[in-house]
Amino acid sequence: MLINNKFLFLTCLILLVLISFVFSLLTGSSKLSSNDIISLFNGTASPLLQTLIFELRLPRALAAFAAGALLSLAGVLMQVLLRNPLADPYVLGVSGGSALAALLAMLMGVNSLLMTGSAFIGALISILLVFVFSHQSGSWTVSRLLLTGIILASGWGAMISFILVIAPAEQVHGMLFWLMGDLSYDRPLLPAYLILLCGLIFSMLISRQLNIMLWGDLQAGSLGIQIKNLRLKIFFLSSLMTAGAITLAGSIGFVGLVIPHLVRLVLGTDHRYLLPASALTGGALLIIADTLARTILSPQQLPVGILTALIGVPLFLYLLKKST
């Protein structure tokens, strides 16, 4: 069921994003009346209402959108890099390194800003380690990259478990939340949106090369692509975007693996459409998932990672069944 009119599809996705923003702004523990909504538009809303919408719900929805878009883009790129539709942004251990650094920061009891910075630095260290160890004597093969990444990821995993075991009981809940994806605390949005913008522009610049990369190194090389160079670009782009997403929202699972898949089922593999469509779909899904995460069991909040899976799995299975 490939869709022919790709621009129409992209327009629909933009609408979907807008709708999910509105849904997120208007949904929550304090119910809004229709008068409240009108007052928001003509500027007569009470200060309390304005604070609720523009200082609490809007930043959170913006964070969710950025995280979802970043993860989806990173997922698309990682699947090209490893030429495997089953790859996700975390497969090379970026999330593990980032999570370890974030948990260490929590253990030391620093504030949320320092923790965010620490998570980003952890991700960068992990990216560099993978690069240094897999990039030996000129050869930079997919299998070596994958092996290095997976081994590092399991190393990070062990250290994360270690921290969870030795951490004081009152901190463990917060840590688990972070590990499953948490959008509930305040964080700077600007860096994430900068990474998102640059990441989208750079990956769009190489989008036709991405299409060809899927045919393998030899075919791509014979069609004029400098493989090594392109691989490095893809590696750093997807890693940076993953780092941005994790820093913003913890390790939200599922989005980076399934959104690219989902969009491909409908739109095909042309990255000139796949990249923007994945970013929009991922962003919208995460806004909706986060809105549900903070409302279904309110006042109890759920980690958004649980919701992304709860929404994504049936949606994906449905599309998969329909496509075959």
Binding site: L2, R83, N84, P85, L214, W215, G216, L218, Q219, S222, L223, R264, L265, G268, T269
Partner: peptide, 14 residues
């Protein structure tokens, strides 16, 4: 240009 002996392509495409 080259036509290789075999290709491994795992993504949907027309």
């Amino acid at each position: 240009g080259i036509m290789l002996q075999e290709y491994e392509y795992n993504f949907p495409s027309t």
